[in-house]
Simulated assay, not measured.
Amino acid sequence: MDPRGGDYRQQARDFAVLAVLEGEEGLSGEQEELARAVMEVVLLAGLAPYNIEAAADGEETGVGLAPAPGNHRALRVKWQQDPAAARHLTPELCKAQQAAMHQALHTILSAHRFWIEDAPLSEAPLVLGRTRPGH
């Protein structure tokens, strides 16, 4: 599947399930609906979604999703760095790249009017809904 071409909505539906990070629980119905919307924005922004099937082959880089503990409607949107590339970087550089990607995800999702929990920009955004209440 090519995240740069084709029908973004169909690809977003496909990636909504494939982008759940390894070791995480499956998504609730509300989370899966939110995941489709998030993945559509990720694809439109030109970012690669994490793909659990490709991760099995060692290609683990991309925007991944994790269910929010205790909130069956929210999703944590995380940048998954390539572990092979990260081995060649200092821990400080890995941390800086991770923080920058989370800040970029926060900015992109906010621009698309997703409701994101207030937290430091360097943290993986916690998406609470498609729009902030009252907007």
Rank of each mutant, 00 (worst) to 15 (best):
E24P: 01
G129K: 13
A68P: 00
S110L: 08
V127I: 13
E92Y: 00
N71H: 12
A85F: 12
L93N: 04
A54Y: 11
S122G: 02
P49N: 07
I108M: 01
E32M: 08
P133T: 08
Q97K: 14
L93V: 12
E92P: 00
D82G: 07
H102I: 03
L43T: 01
R132F: 09
A48H: 01
Q103S: 13
A45Y: 07
R4D: 04
G29L: 12
P49C: 06
A111S: 10
A84W: 12
D14A: 11
E53P: 05
Q97L: 15
D7R: 05
G6E: 06
K78S: 08
M101F: 15
Y8N: 13
V42A: 10
L27Y: 10
K95F: 08
Q11T: 02
S122N: 06
W115R: 04
L18P: 01
A12Q: 02
A104L: 10
E22F: 13
A86E: 12
L27D: 03
A124T: 03
E24A: 14
Q31G: 09
G129Y: 05
E30W: 05
L44Q: 15
A119G: 02
E117T: 04
V38H: 09
E24Y: 09
R87M: 14
I108H: 01
V127C: 07
P49T: 09
A124Y: 00
R76W: 13
R113T: 02
A85P: 02
I116W: 01
K78C: 11
W115H: 10
A100I: 08
L105N: 05
D7H: 08
